[in-house]
């Protein structure tokens, strides 16, 4: 009940426009474990939505449902008001949802170009890889996003942490996703690299896409996001407009001391 009220409250204070993506009453069980219990989520156009919560709160499970890695046991997913099913990662990609996974964003031994086009290379004559066009587009994308990478032919394992993260985020933008999901984009980055990555996230919004970002770092969350949804123990416990809340309140929501 509480959840529903909060859900409604969240909707009222946000703009009147229709959500681009909406999840309703999502449940996910692993054996006897209730990973998600009646969780709702709504994402509006041109919005950066932060998803926060303690370890095991269900953040990763929730975004994996949007990314098509898991299927929900209950609940519905709506895109622009129409009910849809996201049966596989490929289906999610086809809906122009781009996900940047923590840790496994890149394939280490493949080069920059091959990573940008992972899973959907540009082709000619249907089966053949069109390397030339892929290189040209990569150059274009990197220039647009002001990402500097020494050599496109270098396996990405030789890149720095910041370059790798920029590349992973850049890939999501390059595919002009309507929705970009970022799982812990600033984990394991240095100060300068973090700053650049946060700037990139804002850039995604400027390109006209909506963003869902998971992070443990509330300062980063407060720097980039418009709205914050808090999960605890597989349930949604709150949704706050950033400008009308503070770190303290969010921490209390996360720990359940509110």
């Amino acid at each position: 009940m509480v959840t529903n009220k909060l859900l409604k409250a969240g909707r009222d204070i946000t703009s009147k426009s229709e959500p681009i993506l909406e999840l309703r009453g999502i449940c996910k069980y692993f054996g006897g474990v209730h990973a998600l219990e009646d969780v709702g989520l709504e994402l509006y156009p041109d919005e950066i939505l932060a998803l926060v919560g303690d370890n095991g709160a269900g953040k990763s499970t929730l975004i994996k449902i949007i990314a098509g890695v898991y299927q929900p046991d209950k609940g519905e997913v709506l895109m622009e008001g129409k009910e849809i099913e996201i049966r596989s990662p490929r289906a999610s990609m086809d809906l122009r949802i781009e996900t940047v996974y923590q840790e496994l964003a890149l394939v280490d031994k493949l080069d920059v170009v091959e990573n940008i086009f992972l899973g959907r290379p540009l082709t000619k004559f249907r089966w053949f890889v069109n390397r030339k066009r892929m290189v040209a587009e990569t150059v274009d994308i990197l220039k647009r996003l002001k990402i500097s990478i020494p050599s496109l032919k270098e396996p990405v394992q030789n890149l720095s942490g910041g370059q790798r993260q920029a590349l992973a985020v850049g890939r999501a933008i390059a595919w002009s996703g309507r929705i970009v999901i970022l799982d812990e984009p600033t984990a394991a980055l240095g100060v300068e690299e973090t700053r650049k990555t946060l700037a990139l996230i804002k850039q995604i919004k400027e390109q006209g896409a909506s963003v869902i970002v998971i992070s443990h770092n509330l300062r980063h969350i407060f720097e980039v996001s418009d709205r914050i949804i808090v999960l605890r123990g597989g349930r949604r416990v709150g949704s706050r407009i950033k400008s009308k809340t503070n770190i303290d309140e969010i921490v209390k929501l996360i720990t359940g001391s509110l």
């Binding site: 990662p89 890149l106 394939v107 992972l118 899973g119």
Partner: peptide, 14 residues
């Protein structure tokens, strides 16, 4: 090559 390097990433990218 993608699968041999990182089959989970390959799967997640369709």
């Amino acid at each position: 090559f993608a699968i041999g390097n990182n089959s989970t990433a390959a799967r997640f990218f369709g």
